[in-house]
Write a protein that binds this DNA or RNA. Structure first.
Lengths: 193, 193, 193, 193
DNA sequence: AATGAATGAGAGTTCATTCAT
DNA sequence: AATGAATGAACTCTCATTCAT
């Protein structure tokens, strides 16, 4: 009697799958609604197996956040002429907000948690600090090579950029129209249009 | 048998006290950490009594949010010459962020929840919509009476103002320095300085 | 339609009932097999209710042990002429072993745990120390009033008495015949017969 | 394709190593704290491998106990003139309690478990019965060859000896001073000094 | 209007055991 | 002979909610 063995779902990286599932859950229902049992179920495994990979829920969460932050930072790497870099940075953020709104949802959760959880605060601040420094750097270079007129308060402008993008993207519900307007006005303010 | 009724120690408005306690809790530990028992304890009553006033936790939360939104909206009512109104609006937000950071913490929680809870979404959007309309109105009147130069895209500027203030205030940790910079740059952008 | 309300099982002291139930469980299945759910079930209540009275299992256990130790100590209080006190002390132990073997079972568990749990060690040592001091005191007075001949090493004899009674009673299975023999031989050794 | 088999690092007797590790664990943390995973880890192998040698935890435990009992029995074999044998028996027990207290710790665990687990009860009773018979035999021969004066109740004295030694050694914490006193008094009682 | 007591449903976590390789 | 991965069943503990008084 030839038994048809259903092959195991080819789990090359269970850890990654679990992180991805938890990421989606957090985007969906927030930290509040995150249930290890459902994360495991989403991957098609037992809760105990989840704990085989992630000893505690807290550790799973931290890994999810690392993943999200990495995901975000990777979209900030731009190339080309400085003035173009600024434009493509904004375009990148808008695309991200459109195509991967979960990322901002998760960042929002992260931002809130960072008030209370020091281990998360580190992760979160590292990201925002990097973001702000990146923007400031782009502005500085654009001014330096003459593609943007100076003088200007680079710190203040970088702060404005980061604050307004965070306000428009992370604080839901993300309204595409508002985001478009905000970015456009930012560009105008900075002299990009 | 005449019963000696010990009068309740103070119950002019238990509901209000409970809402205030829950508000503080949410600011402190977020929705995630909100426990009816502790809210009741903070007011000095039994959990069961809390449920006498608020049949469910959800209802309590909704009332807390109404309270917070009202608190926020009340600080937006300004008077005086239009150009002054804009400046004092900004100043008011900064003062609020400094003196009552809990309010923004609660608003942050609210913003996140609004994605998932329709009954909260209404409350939340009402507030942001009003806020944006207020800013837009102030700008419009300032342009109309000549205290600000035109023409300008009022919608876009109002969006930028609201987005950047939300981004600077609600997304923790509120960094006073960043907020100052952001507001200053906003004022410059709008032509207020 | 007259509803027949089954009256609540008249719980004058739930705490006490829970301690008693846990005591029986430990005697039956040891610490190893102690399950909060079954303790609650034995009393006819929900596990959550058990936790209403005893925040943690550990606390429940400690209370059970206090109860057991108190139970044991109470049987050590004897009166009468000193020589009779010694005899009735032995008789009391034998009666206890016969009628309430659970007490020794629980004491055995306690003795083992005391190696690892400092909070239990205190309880346990207090009991054995008291026991030994009591026996020593009885011997001393009996020698002093001439009802037992001296001189003798009181400390050594008290140690022998306590050790042999513990060995005969706490280390299961309690064999009545062996206990009888041991006590008889002890009495002979001490000169009580 | 000739497979290169890396020879197992050392496996003259894995079973024995596992039993030894489990023995140490039980002495340390009792049955309550015995974890197959840690036993395996102590030997440097995987849990699954442990289950290759010992299908169930129960079986491992039984083997540990057989080991412990054998260990204990082996110290009871004495030689020489009968009166000396008794003395050296006591000395042997004292040495064991000093140098290998784990053995008594494990015996204590065993004693408690024997109440509930019939397969352990057999093992345990076999040991105590043998012990008692040994002591009785030594006394009998000593009386027979005149090195101890008779007549005496051999059964009762053997019971007293075994009970007091168990009480002094197995019931923790083993207090060397109490043990010394107890043994000395036993010897006096039996006429050995 | 207020409470002590009670509970159902579920949370995260643990562990001996199994199985494919 | 050995293992990484997986699991079922169970555990303690939590919490919003209810109910008799």
């Amino acid at each position: 009697m030839p038994e048809e063995k259903i092959p195991p779902p080819l789990a090359p990286d269970r850890r990654q799958a679990l992180v991805a599932a938890a990421y989606r859950q957090i985007a969906d229902v927030g930290f509040e609604g995150l249930r290890t049992r459902e994360v495991a179920a989403a991957v098609g495994i037992n809760v105990a197996t989840l704990h085989y990979y992630f000893p505690t829920k807290e550790i799973l969460i931290r890994d999810v956040l690392k993943h999200a932050m990495e995901r975000f930072r990777s979209t900030m790497r731009v190339t080309g002429p400085t003035i173009e870099q600024l434009r493509s940075h904004f375009a990148g953020i808008r695309r991200l907000a459109r195509e991967e709104p979960e990322l901002f949802a998760v960042m929002g959760e992260l931002a809130l948690r960072s008030t209370r959880d020091p281990s998360i605060r580190g992760l979160y601040q590292a990201t925002t600090t990097t973001w702000r420094a990146t923007v400031r750097g782009l502005l500085a270079r654009a001014v330096a090579d003459g593609s943007l007129s100076g003088p200007r308060n680079l710190d203040a402008q970088a702060s404005l950029v980061v604050a307004s993008l965070m306000g428009a993207c992370m604080v839901p519900p993300i309204q595409p129209e508002r985001l478009r307007e905000t970015v456009a006005e930012l560009e105008r303010t900075l002299g990009l249009r």
